[in-house]
Design a protein around this nucleic acid. Structure first.
Lengths: 220, 220
DNA sequence: TAGATTGTTAATCGATTAACAATC
DNA sequence: TAGATTGTTAATCGATTAACAATC
């Protein structure tokens, strides 16, 4: 079992390779070497070859990789060779932003329902979103074979929503609430930690200010 | 220089410690051991002690850590002991979501301006956001001592916006566009990669389905 | 004081890089 | 064929875990 476990750090690089390959494909590029891919992505050629070889030998000695083939293979590995039914719970600003982002739909993620504890406020009507009440969520998921549930609620009700998702049979949760959700291990949980990203930014901002000051003092 | 470089993996854990300490503080908890913090965060006690000791000995043998003190120290390290002037470029749904998210303001990040290439469409007016045209961006940053610039534009103009930010003297860029921006090394760049997060989710979703199928086949 | 828990060194583990034979 | 570049093994580097003396 652990034998064919690929580490999470490798997995998180795959979408980046996938994105660059997609761009190359759009540009009509046919083949690419690990070295060229390294120049694009910033990862070493060696690392790229190692990463890809976790999943199979997609390249050819003396030639490199066929862009289209590698793109398709990575798509399959990432589960992007099919479509998913998705719901969002939390019809606030963030839920709204995700709902209207076209890239997800294009990648096969179809948002077929939006839910909120307070579905009938005027804000939603204005925005053209058909928002349903939370107590319809569980049945909706079961009836529509929803596999992915997005959480863009406040952190106060996020766990409750996650529980409904799990109970109804959702396979994966994409969480934007600032809380570490608890889900069974056969349910995939991916959390986007916006605050933590911003705080990391401010760490480096502060550190760079510090380094700058130091350098100036040395000068004098 | 490299001597006091703390690795990025350590830095990204600090906001998580910070969040849990904030919650403990709210609950009125005074002291905590690395073991208890381990139970909360899922990181090992040893790792937590190692992480913290990159920045100093905040604990006390036989006692543990004072929650309030450690919280404040981490805040200082993360640069959360002051306020920042921030602008957003890209007044679409995502820009809107970030603009109205109260947590950032609470943490000291004051969004004092929102910009867009197309500032006068009715959508923005409806939303109560005072959106300015892009050609005022550079002067605005200089006049208002803006240190952080957020990018929520399409990927097509993201680099252009980043260039304006850099030229005007922004110190850090928080990027949501799906593109690897190029900025000088003294400018902090933190990118939120939503698509890549979603694709990682779908990788695990697919893998779990595969494992499940395998297990079922073994049964038969 | 005795017990608890840190700070820190040493050991282990895993990930990245280097090297090169295989081969297209 | 000769040159190029992969796939893969070995070496290196860095991060995590374990252990324990220091000490509150």
């Amino acid at each position: 079992m652990a034998k064919n476990e690929v580490s999470i750090t490798v997995i998180r690089r795959l979408p980046i390779y996938y994105r660059y390959l997609g761009e190359l494909l759009d540009k009509g590029v046919n083949r690419i070497s690990s070295q060229e891919l390294s120049n694009l992505t910033g990862y070493t050629a060696s690392q790229i070859r190692q990463d890809l070889n976790n999943f199979g030998g997609f390249g050819q000695q003396g030639y490199g990789y066929n862009v289209e083939e590698l793109y398709n293979e990575l798509g399959k590995i990432l589960g992007l060779d099919r479509e998913y039914n998705v719901v969002i719970t939390g019809a606030g600003n963030l839920g709204h932003a995700i709902y209207y982002y076209r890239g997800f739909k294009r990648a096969g993620f179809n948002i077929i329902g939006v839910f909120d504890i307070n579905p009938d406020n005027t804000r939603h009507a204005k925005r053209n979103m058909d928002v349903r009440p939370l107590d319809e969520l569980e049945d909706f998921i079961k009836e529509n074979k929803v596999e992915i549930g997005i959480i863009t609620t406040s952190k106060e009700i996020a766990q409750e929503v996650a529980d409904i998702y799990v109970r109804a049979g959702v396979k994966a949760i994409w969480n934007f609430a600032t809380i570490d959700l608890i889900v069974p291990e056969d349910v995939t949980l991916e959390s986007v930690r916006l605050s933590e990203s911003l705080f990391t930014l401010s760490y480096f901002l502060k550190r760079n200010e510090g380094l700058k000051k130091e350098a100036e003092e040395k000068k004098n």
